[in-house]
Each structure stands twice: as structure tokens, then as C-alpha cells.
Design a binder for these strands. Structure first.
Lengths: 202, 202
DNA sequence: GTCTATATTTCGATAGAC
DNA sequence: GTCTATCGAAATATAGAC
């Protein structure tokens, strides 16, 4: 994503620390992660961590920023398919990504710290939900241009489509609740796609 | 909602403590809230808090549970309206509720602690998103019965509708990001309703 | 840069008087 | 039940040797 933050030279040890910190932060959250714990995980002394990162806050920020910068774009679409199969593919990819344990952990921890670190919340939004929405809007814009969809503005349609994907299944999974039988990813994608096609298909 | 937990007798002091704790937990989160801080806010000594609540964890749980139990149901609908205006009303109510500062704070703090306190996550889901979805499903079921909507199962439709309401606007507000111009609550509700009617209207 | 050892603070929880 | 005073643990951050 954006290269707006000065990237410190990546040394081997620095990356080791960041890896250990990421594991800890995503697993147990910001507050429950101790610098001692990170040091132990990285097999490094605590003083070494402070040689690389000014404070726990900034270590946390570095972890989140690194992950945001890395977040891969969707692979380009094998184009020229109809609306239904295109949306099915895109929706499936997005929901798969959203439900990955790491993605959920990231969501939880950023949400938790968003009030304390507003800059991080913005970076997360832009590289995560924001970027995803932009890409889906682009796909939908093309579908509209090809006459496969009509009657909506691309960004609006993307918003609605993403919303229909991030439903109960997402909420329950994020909260760590058991999944009701039969509410599979496939079914959720299918319902969202079908609704889009019924509402805006030609 | 469910009366499954034994409710301790509400004394005046107990409520004072719970109020102070709620303010603190919702404002700065679980970890950043200190028992000293709660005591000061409640103008009570820390020992008094521990006379009423065994630990910080249980105090937190009591705060969340009390709020869950209180969460009001939607008022019954002034019935016999068509699908569009019914959904508009329900959608507006839900989105207003979702975007209230207290609701968002509750969401943030429960999400943050869900891994550490799974029981709370379940209680929150059931009295919040779960209950809301059930009520909206009931409304939709009636619309289907009256022939205003067709082609979906009520629970599925409720899931899709709620999803379309909880979109970018919700995400950005929850993360504390500034709102882009013109993306109002009304516009969000309108888009979701219009999509429902186009997809499933008679 | 990296380590060991430690300073300092903060916080959850309790003892004991009333 | 409520208070004052305090304990003990844990955690952030640093000093100083190598």
C-alpha cells in the first residue's frame, strides 16, 4: 500500500523481533503482551528490543504497519466472465481472506487499540477494508461497463456486496463462537451473489 | 434477553460501582482500566469494590452482562406498511443504534476481550447481533407472508439486510475515522432497502 | 549492538480497624 | 459493609559492561 512511512532498514534481528512481536500481539492482544515475552520468543534480550524500538507502542505500530504494507492485492481476474461467476470468484476470495485466523486476530487487535492509536486505525482501514473495497469497486465498474450490471454506482455496489459477505458468519467467527451447521462460506457467497444479480443484473 | 445468570440483589452502592466501571471500561478498554480508577470515579474505596466483586474480570463481566440484559428490543412496528417503508423504518432504527457511541464502545471492548472471556462473547452476541437478527427476521417473515417479499428465507434475508446496513460507514465510525462527506445514515439505509426491494420485492 | 542486572512504577488484591 | 494502608507481582524501561 502507501509508502508514506519511513521504512527503517530491515536487519535480520529486527525482523526476528517483529516476527515474535507479531505472534504475541495477534495471539493475546496488546496489553497482555509483555516485552519480556517478546524477548523470550525472539531469543533476544529485552535491551536489544529497546535498541531497535523506542517503546512498546512503537513496536506495536511497527508490527501493524508491516502487515498492512504486505497485504496482498487480489490477483487480477481471469476476465470476460459473466456477473454471477465473477462476483462468485471475488466474493469467495474476500470471504476466505476475512475468515483467516490471522486476519481476524488483526481485526480484533486493531479494533481494540483504535482509540489509543488513531494513526494505526487509519493505516489498517486504508490497507485493509479500504483497499478491498476499492478493488471490488473496480471489478464492479467493469461489469457495469460491459453491461452485466446496471442501476448502481460502483462504490455503492461494492459497499453493499462486501456488507452481504461480512455477515453473521464473520461476526460469529470473529467472536470465537461455534458455527451453526450448514452456514458455510460457499452458502454465504452464493446468497450475496444471488442478491446482487437479482437486484442489479441486466 | 436470557435470564440464565443469577442476578445479585441490586444495592445502591453496587449500581454506583457498576456505573463507574462501565464508564471506564467502555472509554479506555479493559486493560487500561484500573481498579483504583474505578474506585475514584465511584467515590468508593477499592476494598468496597472487592466486597461486591471477586475480581476485575468478574466486575467486567458484570458490566457487560448488565448492559446486555438491558438492551431494549425494537419497538413493535406500526404494521401494514409496504416492504419499502417497513424496511426503511427497521433499517433506520438498527443503524441508529449501531452507530451510537456506547454501542460502538461496547463492540470494541467485547471484541477485544472475546478471546479471554468466551462466555461474555457469547452473551454479547446473543443479546446484541443475535437478537437483532431474530427481530428483523421476524419482520421479514411477516412481509413474506403478506406477499410483499418473495424468494428468500427470512433468516437469510435478515442476514443480508443487516450486512448491507453495517458497511463502510459502520467500519469507519467504529475505527474513529472521519466520515466522508455525504455518506449519511439515510443514504446507507436507502441503498440497503432499495437493494432488498429490487432483489426480493414482488 | 547485545547482554545481565536492576530501577521504578503501576496495579490487582488483601489485612485489619471500625 | 466500608474504610486506610500496604503487600507482592509484573511489567516498562534503563544503566553499564563487553
Amino acid at each position: 500500500m502507501s509508502r508514506s512511512h519511513p521504512t527503517p532498514k530491515p536487519s535480520a534481528k529486527r525482523e526476528t523481533i517483529l516476527d515474535a512481536a507479531q505472534t504475541a500481539f495477534l495471539e493475546v492482544g496488546y496489553a497482555a503482551t509483555s516485552m519480556d515475552g517478546v524477548a523470550a520468543r525472539a531469543t533476544v534480550s529485552k535491551a536489544t528490543i529497546y535498541a531497535h524500538f523506542e517503546s512498546k507502542d512503537l513496536l506495536f505500530a511497527a508490527v501493524i504497519r508491516r502487515r498492512c504494507d504486505r497485504s496482498d492485492a487480489f490477483a487480477p481476474l481471469a476476465d470476460k466472465a459473466d456477473a454471477r461467476s465473477t462476483l462468485r470468484l471475488v466474493g469467495r476470495r474476500l470471504l476466505d481472506l476475512l475468515l483467516q485466523p490471522d486476519t481476524l486476530a488483526m481485526y480484533r487487535v486493531v479494533v481494540a487499540e483504535s482509540a489509543r492509536q488513531p494513526d494505526l486505525a487509519r493505516a489498517f482501514y486504508e490497507s485493509g477494508p479500504g483497499a478491498g473495497k476499492a478493488q471490488i469497486a473496480a471489478v464492479i465498474a467493469e461489469l457495469i461497463q460491459r453491461g452485466e450490471l446496471a442501476g448502481v454506482e460502483p462504490w455503492q455496489a461494492a459497499d453493499l456486496f462486501v456488507g452481504m459477505l461480512r455477515t453473521d458468519l464473520f461476526m460469529r467467527t470473529m467472536l470465537g463462537l461455534p458455527q451453526p451447521e450448514g452456514r458455510t462460506i460457499e452458502a454465504a457467497v452464493e446468497a450475496a451473489v444471488e442478491t446482487m444479480v437479482r437486484a442489479f443484473g441486466r
